[in-house]
Simulated scan of single mutants.
Amino acid sequence: MFILKNSLLEIAIHPIGAELQKISAVKNDLEFMWDGNPEIWSGHAPNLFPIVGELKDGRFTYKNKSYHLSRHGFARRSDAFVVDEKSENHLSLKMTYSEATLLNYPFKFEFLVSYALVKNRITITYTVRNIDDKTIYFSIGGHPAFKCPVYPEETYEEYSLQFEHPETSPTHLLNVSTGLFTSETEAVFKTPGTIPLHTHLFDKDALVFKDLKSKQVSLHSKNHGEILNFNFEDFPFLGIWAKPNAKFVCIEPWQGLADSEDSIQVLKDKEGIVALEKNKTYSASYSIEIHERHLV
């Protein structure tokens, strides 16, 4: 486990999947991340690459050849990450293509996940380098799960997500059994810009937004105010999810989406896909800022 620490926060990153697994207050030991209870959901903050979500039939095609990738891609469970850079408040882990990855994803790449801890803010940066002799196609995304409630005397229903702008965007519905998008949408915002959390919010799987005006959302406690701010400036899509009745909420910045039920499965035509030319580099960041009132 890699540890980054300053006077306010300590974070822990596991080398498998380069996954952030802990955010805690140094002075009062408050925990802000889900503990990864395997009986409910073993994840903490998986890093999604080279796809986001589910592929139709678990497959995509590239140059008329079919390849298999599981939901959210292979990076999140990979033991191939190595340290690229490390200092007291910064860590960068790198995964490089291999003969094994080429069997399921026919592109040569370097994928870096970097963490920077500055005061009460954690910035996570994804960097993809094309080291192939052709254009590569990929999606990236985050999947961090935040403890909810943070304080023991609270309930899940006393929490909400509050967006920086009034929002009325619908969620795009997924088929619960396949993980693929249907053609249906559903209204979510009864109060523009606010989503109250409750145990049945995710009965139809994740909430997925494609056209939010906001690039920042806060996790808010009725009793303790704003817990954290989440900035996803570099990402066009946002997912929100939890296991039903679980004590967490995932706020998921995505560059890329699951397939739709009518997908033709061609990778380069996939919604949200990034096309990166040879010798080029792509980066996108999101950040988590814990409100200082919870760090004293």
Rank of each mutant, 00 (worst) to 15 (best):
L4N: 03
K5Y: 02
N6Q: 03
I11Y: 00
I13Q: 04
H14T: 09
P15C: 05
I23D: 02
N28H: 06
D29Q: 08
D29E: 13
D35P: 03
G36V: 09
P38M: 14
W41D: 10
W41E: 13
S42D: 13
G43Y: 07
A45E: 12
L48Q: 13
P50R: 06
V52T: 05
V52M: 07
V52I: 06
E54R: 12
L55D: 01
G58Q: 13
R59C: 13
F60I: 11
T61Q: 15
T61M: 08
Y62S: 15
N64V: 00
K65E: 05
Y67H: 05
H68N: 14
A75E: 03
R77Q: 15
R77V: 15
S78E: 00
D79P: 11
D79G: 12
D79V: 06
A80S: 14
A80G: 15
E88R: 15
N89G: 04
L91D: 00
S92T: 06
L93S: 08
K94W: 02
M95Y: 10
S98Y: 09
E99C: 05
E99G: 13
Y105V: 12
F107D: 08
E110I: 14
L112K: 05
S114D: 05
A116W: 01
K119G: 08
T123Y: 02
I124Y: 01
V128T: 11
V128I: 15
I131A: 02
T135E: 13
Y137L: 06
Y137M: 05
I140R: 01
G142I: 09
A145C: 13
A145M: 14
P149G: 01
E154T: 14
E154A: 14
E157R: 14
E164F: 01
S177Q: 13
G179C: 05
F181A: 01
S183I: 09
S183H: 06
A187I: 12
V188E: 04
F189A: 12
T191P: 02
G193N: 02
I195V: 07
I195K: 07
H198P: 02
H200A: 13
H200M: 12
D205A: 07
K210Q: 07
D211S: 09
S214W: 00
S214L: 03
K215P: 00
K215M: 02
Q216Y: 04
F230W: 06
F232E: 04
D234V: 01
F235W: 00
F235K: 01
G239M: 09
I240F: 02
W241M: 08
K243R: 12
K247L: 15
F248L: 04
V249S: 09
C250D: 00
W254N: 03
W254C: 08
Q255L: 13
Q255S: 15
S260E: 11
I264F: 11
L267Y: 04
D269A: 05
A275F: 06
L276E: 05
E277S: 13
K278Q: 11
K278W: 04
N279I: 06
K280S: 06
S283D: 09
A284S: 11
S285V: 12
S285E: 14
I290A: 10
H291M: 15
R293G: 10
R293K: 15
H294K: 11
L295T: 06
L295G: 10
